[in-house]
Design a protein around this nucleic acid. Structure first.
Lengths: 152, 152
DNA sequence: CCGCGAAATATGACATGTCAAGGAAAACCC
DNA sequence: GGGTTTTCCTTGACATGTCATATTTCGCGG
């Protein structure tokens, strides 16, 4: 089920906007931030990506003009990813069709009861993972990635 | 939710058996076949993979000794992927831990009611996609991939 | 038969993701 | 306040997936 939905939604997103799902996720997260900028690490946590994956992907998006990097004055190690005007226009243009696509292939197929059930299920499972590693209340989600775990 | 579960299950599978999820899927599909062999196309349909992805992946698995290719006598274009002894041992060794892993991170967290609800939801959504392209009753699933669709 | 579109794979170029390593700045810690 | 440890990010090598294309064979109509 997730395979089919993900594939269909991704296909339509790319067809309609030229953005990939990863592109969309990054742009969306940035567009929700106050100054349209976020630290790389925060972004990575929020999306459950590795730092390296995000860095690579930001590099590629930078080359397409969707985002830029900016230095951080408080912490010289850190860097911001900033939404450009082009990126802002892109996400604004893509969003309506995308949410409609998700509705069409998933949400609208279910009754309110089913959606409620699915929400409960999702919460339970996410909580199962959260317990072990949700120890940083400042960040919205953080988890999992940071689990090298004791391993023989 | 799917992100977390998939990541955890994949991580444990690789840790315990050295197989990736794609490896496991291929081996599993082959192990269910009568002669431990399947045509590439059938396998690709069954797993919702592109033919090229499967071909590449089989090449890599072949180099690791998990599977082999064999010619098909009825259709000279076609090829079989065949489970080797090594592959058979690998899947046999990996399977119990893997199903246990899925239980631990998903199934066992839910009540029977929730599992039933999830099943209903999955069926509905899969059916939504099936309508359009489930036209080949011989194959178990087939769909989606074959949708170049009319596109401007 | 013959020719031709379709089917079954293979392959190469390229996009994307992972992993291990490294450089630089912060944080810690007597 | 100098040395160690962490954190943040980048990078390069490599694994994996996609897309367009090539090759061979099949099926079929004439």
């Amino acid at each position: 089920m997730t395979l089919l939905v993900d594939a269909a939604v991704a296909r339509e997103l790319t067809r309609d906007s030229g953005l990939s799902m990863p592109d969309y996720q990054v742009l969306s997260a940035l567009s929700e931030a106050v100054d349209h900028r976020r630290r790389l690490t925060e972004l990575a946590f929020r999306m459950q990506w590795s730092a390296s994956r995000l860095s690579h992907h930001v590099t590629r998006m930078e080359q397409r003009g969707l985002v830029t990097r900016a230095d951080c004055s408080e912490d010289l190690r850190a860097a911001y990813v900033v939404l450009t005007d082009v990126g802002w226009d892109a996400i604004k243009a893509a969003a309506p069709d995308h949410v409609e696509s998700v509705r069409a292939h998933m949400i609208d197929l279910l009754t309110p009861d089913e959606i409620a059930a699915l929400t409960t299920i999702g919460d339970k499972i996410v909580a199962h993972f959260g317990e072990e590693c949700l120890d940083h209340p400042d960040y919205p989600v953080q988890s999992v990635n940071r689990r090298p775990v004791s391993r023989s």
